[in-house]
């Protein structure tokens, strides 16, 4: 891509990225899997693969991505799910079986299941 050459360029880039993101946020379920060294060691890679397989099989439109450490070491692997129009929810202690449950119960049927980790921090945005 072309190099960004000024503050105005950068702002324009940010705006266009935000617009694209808002669009996918409206349509797709956003799944984030914490994949720092510690998460991967706890089995996050397997969880990510399972989630993407099940979602594909069930025809759920998702956007699965990796992130760094979410900070919940005691509950690794952790997965954040953001359904369109809803607040994101973080699930802890996720394994392949739990991943299946999350997709089938929470993502497809909005059923509240166990394993949700309460958000315990403030971000700089608020």
């Amino acid at each position: 891509m072309d190099k960004i050459k000024s503050l105005a360029d950068l702002q324009a880039k940010k705006e266009s990225l935000l617009a694209t993101m808002a669009q996918t946020n409206e349509q797709d379920v956003q799944i984030k899997v914490a994949m720092a060294t510690c998460g991967i060691a706890a089995g996050a890679k397997e969880v990510m693969d399972t989630m993407s397989d099940i979602c594909e099989a069930k025809g759920v439109k998702t956007n699965i991505s990796q992130t760094g450490c979410m900070g919940y070491c005691y509950a690794e692997p952790t997965v954040e799910i953001k359904k369109p129009g809803k607040e994101p929810i973080v699930f802890g202690y996720v394994n392949a079986a739990k991943a299946k449950e999350i997709v089938e119960k929470y993502i497809l049927n909005d059923e509240i299941i166990e394993g949700v980790i309460p958000q315990n921090y403030q971000s700089i945005d608020n």
Binding site: K32, S65, Q66, T67, E80, Y121, Q122, I124
Partner: peptide, 20 residues
């Protein structure tokens, strides 16, 4: 401050939120 939200993420603002 909310009792459950004693943490404030500045250095970790993006950790766990973005794809690195």
């Amino acid at each position: 401050m909310d009792v459950n939200k004693k943490q404030l993420r500045i250095a970790l603002r993006n950790c766990g939120f973005i794809d690195p």
